[in-house]
Design a protein around this nucleic acid. Structure first.
Lengths: 239, 239
DNA sequence: GCTAATTTGTTCGTATGTATA
DNA sequence: CTATACATACGAACAAATTAG
């Protein structure tokens, strides 16, 4: 309260000192216990915890109950190409991974304003909704929600369940090929239900990809919303 | 403490009840004060604060000192097209915004392993680093760090400072045109120094775009790392 | 395998600071 | 100027998970 305050809160100054001690290498892998840090910096343990919390939110630290607080090594991210022929199965096989798509849930819904505009269909039209989990080498890569016009693809759910591939399921409906028209990318905090499937901590970040696939006549085939763990994936656009 | 505990912490149960009261419309715009919520849910004010904190981290709530805690309306995101001719000034003018680029910082650095590979230059080569802030209609859109080969573009800093445009600055070096070779997109929690420039709360999410621009002979012109506020922007890929 | 020590997580209490109405 | 409301900070105790012995 009296020591060179300069208007910065204590927990922020503690966070800066911890960050510096990592940057200069004096702390490499594991942080000293909270009680020790509290004593070293002459603050309450709560104040240390507030500082650690903010650094953990940045992704720099990771706390494990009963074990300690650790410095996160920045992990190399798996590249996920985005382009006119974006398909999950092709993407992962190209990187020597064994792909797998699993159906989480399916239901029939009615098109709301947004979906009707995206799929160019009447408001209230029947749509098949497929929630799928994509896994490669045992690691969950993405959770996706796809909407398909139900009249055109009545058996999409069964076909996907049998093949584990959207491309295959659409081919069985007599659609030999389709292409990606548009992809919109943003990011959010993970939704709790997605966190379970992606095996992520509850405050992780996911990349959101909202995409439209169309057939050869530019008719919308599916509206797709995919969620990728941001710390494991990057989306690559090559032109 | 005794009511159907089922192993979930109190602050999490409080968070769920607050989330539910927003979902069912019983709370529309502003939350009751923390003290009142603490009394209503029979917990300490700290526990309410922990719950609010987690919902704020999700982006659902926003606390303002002295005013109260408010429900965040999901804001429509500004579209940022990504393609072979991605340029900031063209992107924003197309949406009726007045663009502005401001130089935050500049320095000369030596190429490390990663930069040398990206820019296809020898390790240790001199690079001009430009940190710039992009603003449209008073709202900060992105912070970018660009690396340019210093031998080829010796006056890049001055030219950018005078024109406020990378395209213009490169044109003055006799480079009439360039194109985007590759864009890699991921997301992270905002770095504190970026949070200041982007006017973001310290635990916000930013979209990260790592890109390479090349000239007509496919020689790398710049390596660019841009950070966009994820709650205000989406990157759009049209093919 | 069991126990005790260690370490982080949660929850209460209390007080004070600071911005807003 | 006063009251309100969120932010910071200290102290104390116990719970829960892990590790050391």
């Amino acid at each position: 309260m009296n020591d060179a305050d300069e208007g910065v809160t204590r927990w922020r100054r503690v966070a800066d000192r911890i960050r510096a001690s990592i940057a200069d290498g004096s702390v490499a892998e594991q942080l000293p216990p909270e009680t020790e840090l509290a004593e070293r910096y002459s603050v309450n343990r709560h104040t240390v915890r507030r500082a650690i919390q903010s650094l953990a939110a940045e992704g720099l630290l990771r706390s494990e109950r009963g074990r300690g607080t650790f410095v996160n090594a920045p992990a190399p991210r798996l590249a996920y190409p985005v382009g006119p022929r974006t398909r999950f199965s092709e993407n992962v096989t190209a990187q020597g991974q064994r792909p797998a798509g699993r159906l989480i849930r399916s239901e029939t819904v009615r098109a709301d304003q947004a979906l009707a505009a995206l799929l160019n269909c009447p408001l209230g039209a029947a749509l098949a909704r497929l929630d799928t989990l994509s896994v490669a080498s045992g690691l969950p890569l993405s959770v996706s929600t796809g909407y398909f016009p139900a009249d055109r693809f009545p058996n999409i759910v069964r076909n996907y369940a049998e093949t584990g591939s959207i491309t295959e399921a659409l081919a069985r409906h007599g659609l030999p090929d389709y292409r990606r028209l548009e992809t919109r990318i943003t990011a959010e905090r993970v939704h709790p239900s997605d966190a379970v499937h992606l095996d992520l901590p509850p405050d992780s970040i996911v990349l959101i990809s909202n995409a439209i696939d169309v057939d050869a006549e530019d008719r919308p085939v599916q509206a797709l919303r995919s969620r990728f763990p941001a710390d494991r994936m990057e989306l690559v656009i090559r032109l």
